[in-house]
Design a protein around this nucleic acid. Structure first.
Length: 306
DNA sequence: CACGCGTGGGG
DNA sequence: TCCCCAAGCGT
């Protein structure tokens, strides 16, 4: 058992296959106690958490998720709220279009799925704001289905443990899915736990900057370790600028509306950005996106409150 | 398919 | 400080 020379599961030079039993045992012992992982959490609770967690860190999501579950415990509860209420409750999680899509999804679930979040990947994919990651995450984490879950963390774990690379290259959806598919046990329950374990490992141990390989349950069987932990050699990652972008301007404009009790004047919005052209363009795009609306007297408000 | 979409924290 | 990023999705 101490031999790292003999790898019985290797099918290609320089690759390894993490042992599901080791990974899931580690998960049972070390997984963070996140509220949406409680056994009592419904499919709705999981869908809300996964949507909020798209590009937003756990620490910021957690308190908001608690509020949402207390306020809107079922899809029909959220569906009954106004868009303005939903956007205010979303707060500063970012990418507020997610909140509107979740609101729409809640209506669909309430009217077409008996107020129960579907368990089938195809049905989940048909919901607004639910893509390949979220659909599989809900199927696996809420319903214990065997559904390969591929996010940025899993891609990194696979890149290292299986392929021996320093990090994942650009997404290659088909190949990424096949890679994870090949790692999952055949039965639903263990496959679902394996999916959760791969994500957790990437988030807490196999991190981008400073991986804690000494704490990793599969380091003995990691192709990256065996290769001497070579640096990432793929194409440079795209850097998202923020300062000065429309994204920043839209964020400021929307923040004014979130902080107001009702409609605000154009002058109040003009105050948050000095470039009038960019400001007006962002105002237009927010109206187009349904994130704000204009009242008859020319003021601006969150949708559904005027 | 590359890009645009918020926000705040850590190295 | 600045830069990179954190459980993606839709177009």
């Amino acid at each position: 058992m101490t031999s790292s020379e003999t790898n019985t599961t290797t099918s290609m030079p320089g690759t390894s296959a993490p042992d599901p039993a080791e990974l899931t045992a580690w998960f049972d012992a070390h997984a963070r106690d996140l509220p949406w992982r409680a056994p009592t959490t419904t499919g709705w609770g999981v869908l809300v958490s996964e949507t909020m967690l798209q590009q937003t860190p756990v620490r910021r999501v957690q308190p908001v998720w608690e509020e949402w579950m207390a306020r809107w415990p079922r899809p029909s509860d959220l569906a009954a709220a106004t868009q303005a209420e939903v956007l205010r409750a979303w707060g500063k999680l970012g990418y507020p279009r997610r909140a509107l899509r979740l609101h729409e999804a809640a209506s669909v679930i309430a009217t077409e799925h008996g107020d129960v979040v579907p368990a089938e990947v195809d049905a989940l994919l048909a919901l607004p704001g639910v893509g390949t990651y979220t659909a599989r995450a809900v199927a696996a984490f809420a319903y214990g289905r065997r559904a390969p879950v591929v996010d940025t963390n899993v891609r990194r774990v696979v890149a290292r443990a299986v392929h021996g690379a320093g990090d994942a290259g650009p997404p290659a959806p088909k190949r990424d899915l096949a890679d994870v598919e090949a790692l999952l046990p055949a039965d639903d329950a263990r496959a679902a736990k394996m999916s959760a374990a791969l994500m957790e490992l990437g988030q807490t141990v196999c991190t981008v900057r400073s991986p804690a390989c000494e704490a990793c349950p599969i380091s003995h069987d990691c192709a990256w370790q065996h290769a001497g932990r070579p640096a990432y050699a793929g194409p440079p990652k795209k850097v998202q600028r923020f300062a000065g972008t429309d994204r920043q301007v839209r964020g400021r404009l929307l923040d004014v509306l979130r902080g107001a009790d009702g409609p605000v004047t154009r002058e109040q919005l003009d105050a948050v950005w000095n470039d009038a052209g960019q400001r007006d363009q962002c105002l237009d795009s927010l109206l187009t996106d349904g994130l704000m609306e204009q009242t008859q007297d020319g003021r601006f408000a969150l949708p559904g409150e005027s």
